[in-house]
Design a protein around this nucleic acid. Structure first.
Length: 447
RNA sequence: GGUCCGGUGGCAGAGUGGUGAUGCAGAGGACUGCAAAUCCUCGAAUGCCGGUUCGAUUCCGGCCCGGACCUCCA
């Protein structure tokens, strides 16, 4: 097995991955805040870390992949206030939608999926530890993390405290001792979700939940922490501060991975800019695997641009893979080929891995059954070729009307009535059905 | 202003101190009644200026351009 190397945001370089416990690799990824449907940009980390989890499972005997659900958050509260729908209904529905959408992109569920509301006591516990050790203080019903108490603050994001102050664009709350201090716990009025705490009824700040949940499900120190590049500051910086101060002597996460943003017309896709497509909208434009391909054909740390043309290209690439395995059935024994494995182990070089898949598809197309098997194994490690050629090309809908039309056309061709034959073909194409006359007869696929 | 990441053929996108992958699109050909698919062939790129080097797209410096973060954000 090749050596796995990953770019660590903490050191800004590619490092050989050495797990804390080779018998059990642990990874945490920041999951969604469940207040609305996920957009394609939200799906990028899910797909990227899904590939990483699949790869880790192949390299190590046991992997625990944890991804949280944030179900207590001011945006959820705002949504409930605006729509009148109960918070619990919003979070339950959005969580189910999220699971369905990510499943449609071929992402396997994480091994554990902690919910913030299930770990409030863990958060309170961490806040108490931080107060006890002088890293946090209670003020005005809030509990704040004292940033000056942590010397390494800013290490991940490359920021120093002077920058913080110079760049501060928000009013500093009066109860903060330092402008950079952030909220661990805040008071909650009766109409909003709240839990009893030593500081009165309240709810958690944003950053504390990931520290609490990762600690609970993975332990004080674990191997990999992933998330979007836009979370580096302040979210991950704050997580590091909280966790390292709450659990002295621990390492928290050893390798930090950050995926680049999904852009649209050169700009980051985001809810606040309004320039987003939900995963559902995009699933109406292309199959899930094509969307997955679009998210994996660029390196995970680079920005990628979303476009319908790009999506169409991805579908064509997958067409060829499916055609190759259809034309030459896979030999019985298959290993993930070294070309794919090596590419993925080199900081998840999915574009290179995909090009390796193309080489295998060429060989499979030429009749190499072993190449077909290797193509299948390599593609499936990346979450491709999860369907069968028949379903990929034709779907599951009733197609008897197509068969009827094809029979008519065959009769016309036999009579050398090509005008009639071409008319039938054009008619079907107008309905999205493309005919192919091969040596073995006429077949069809969705255009 | 600060921090960080990029600029490769028409588009997408890798690798590499020594004649620049891969996919899509395009051109020509084979096959086909015509298409589609497949196969063969072809054209086409490393932002600018310096430096190091026998040699730089790759390393270093400067510049220009783009983007992200510094505020909720995957």
């Amino acid at each position: 097995m090749p050596e796995l190397r990953l770019h660590n945001s903490l050191t800004r370089r590619r490092e050989v991955f050495v797990p804390i416990d080779p018998g059990h690799v642990r990874m945490y990824v920041c999951g969604p805040t469940v207040y609305d449907l996920a957009h394609v940009g939200n799906a990028r980390p899910v797909v990227v870390y899904d590939v990483l989890a699949r790869l880790l499972r192949r390299l190590y005997p046991r992997v625990t992949y944890a991804r949280n659900i944030t179900d207590v958050d001011d945006k959820i509260n705002a949504r409930a206030t605006a729509s009148g729908e109960p918070i619990a209904a919003i979070t339950a529905r959005t969580t189910a939608d999220y699971h369905a959408d990510m499943g449609a992109l071929g992402a396997l569920p994480p091994d554990v999926e902690p919910r913030a509301t299930g770990h409030i006591s863990d958060m309170i516990d961490i806040a108490q530890r931080l107060i006890a050790s002088g890293h946090a203080y209670a003020a005005d019903g809030h509990v704040l993390f004292a940033v000056p108490s942590f010397n390494d603050y800013g290490k991940l994001s490359g920021r120093n405290r002077d920058d913080q102050i110079a760049g501060a664009r928000i009013d500093v709350a009066p109860y903060k001792r330092d402008a950079a201090d952030f909220v661990l716990w805040k008071p909650s009025p009766a109409e909003l979700p709240g839990w009893d705490s030593p500081w009165g009824r309240g709810r958690p700040g944003w950053h504390i939940e990931c520290s609490a949940m990762s600690h609970r499900v993975l332990g004080e120190s674990f191997d990999i922490h992933g998330g979007g590049a836009d979370l580096i500051f302040p979210h991950h910086e704050n997580e590091i501060a909280q966790s390292l101060c709450a659990f002295p002597g621990s390492q928290f996460a050893r390798y930090w991975l950050h995926n680049g943003m999904l852009n649209i017309n050169g700009e980051k896709m985001s809810k606040s800019l309004g320039n987003f497509f939900t995963v559902r909208q995009v699933l109406a434009m292309a199959p899930g695997e094509a969307i997955r391909m679009m998210l994996l054909r660029g390196h995970y740390r680079a920005p990628i641009d979303f476009s319908e043309n790009g999506l169409a290209d991805c579908r064509k690439e997958l067409d060829r893979f499916y055609r190759a395995v259809e034309r030459t059935p896979a030999a019985p024994s298959a290993e993930v080929p070294a070309s794919v494995m090596d590419a993925l182990c080199d900081d998840l070089n999915t574009p290179l891995a995909i090009s390796a898949l193309h080489a295998l598809a060429d060989a499979a197309m030429a009749g190499d059954a072993q190449a077909s098997a290797d193509l299948q194994a390599g593609a499936q490690l990346m979450g491709f070729l999860q369907s069968t050629p028949a379903v990929w090309f034709q779907g599951n809908d009733d197609s008897s009307w197509i068969d009827t039309a094809i029979a008519d056309r065959i009769a016309a061709r036999k009579a050398r009535d090509f005008a009639r034959a071409d008319a039938i073909r054009a008619e079907l194409l107008a309905k999205g059905i493309l005919l192919e006359d091969g040596a073995g007869g006429t077949t069809w696929r969705k255009a």
